[in-house]
Simulated assay, not measured.
Amino acid sequence: MPGKWKRWGWSVILLCVLYVLYTAYSIAAFAKVNELFRTDAAIVLGAAVIENEPSPVLTERMNHAIWLYDNGYVKKIIVTGGMGDGDSLSEAEVSKRYAMRHGVREEDVFLEGKSKITEQNLQNAYTISREKQISTVTIVSDPLHMKRALRMAEDLGMDAYSSPTQTSAYRSWRTKLPFLLREVFFYFGYQVQA
């Protein structure tokens, strides 16, 4: 009997490991999905700011959203993200200023400046999109963040498409691997609570 339980325990561990590996693979594979459809707006998921300027991660997200706007893929940009500890401006305010410095018209940028996490970014941006009669959206974030973000957007009822940054600040496996492991952890967490 003890041998049977031991085999059963190892089987469960093996299944868990395989599931983690499959999830990591699916996140990495989805990172390459870039749906360049014309939508009403881009939703840029928040990231840190440094001395009232976008961090390298946020800069790349904004650059991609601005490229989508300049090339006619989106008509508006919804910037998201609240205020971090020690900051005097929210991530969204910094993003809006950056967009306007790069030629985006002020009336084409909508601000969501209260959220702290991805799910809040999307929930609050969805509220704005409904208020502004925006029906289709393109989600912009780092490639490894896209699977979880799109799953959340779809669960909220958004008509959403994936367009990850093409020049992510996470370029080497040394920076990508911790991001991937973090995303696997958060993806599991979201699945459990969803």
Rank of each mutant, 00 (worst) to 15 (best):
152 M>K: 08
46 G>N: 03
128 I>K: 02
22 Y>K: 01
77 I>E: 04
83 M>V: 14
192 V>D: 00
83 M>H: 08
73 Y>H: 10
176 K>L: 04
88 S>D: 06
110 F>T: 00
63 N>G: 02
68 L>R: 07
15 L>I: 12
188 F>Q: 06
173 W>F: 13
173 W>R: 00
88 S>G: 11
111 L>E: 14
65 A>Y: 15
48 A>T: 10
190 Y>N: 02
107 E>D: 15
164 P>F: 13
63 N>Q: 10
6 K>Q: 11
50 I>F: 11
109 V>F: 14
159 D>T: 13
55 S>I: 04
40 D>H: 08
103 G>Y: 10
126 Y>N: 06
31 A>T: 09
53 E>Q: 13
179 F>A: 01
48 A>R: 06
34 N>Q: 11
12 V>F: 15
8 W>A: 09
111 L>R: 08
189 G>L: 07
106 E>G: 12
50 I>C: 00
184 V>R: 02
19 Y>D: 03
117 I>G: 00
167 T>Q: 01
113 G>T: 06
80 T>M: 05
10 W>A: 00
34 N>V: 10
85 D>L: 06
38 R>I: 11
173 W>M: 01
122 L>C: 10
74 V>T: 10
28 A>Y: 15
49 V>M: 02
154 E>S: 11
37 F>G: 02
14 L>T: 14
8 W>K: 03
112 E>C: 03
190 Y>P: 07
55 S>M: 04
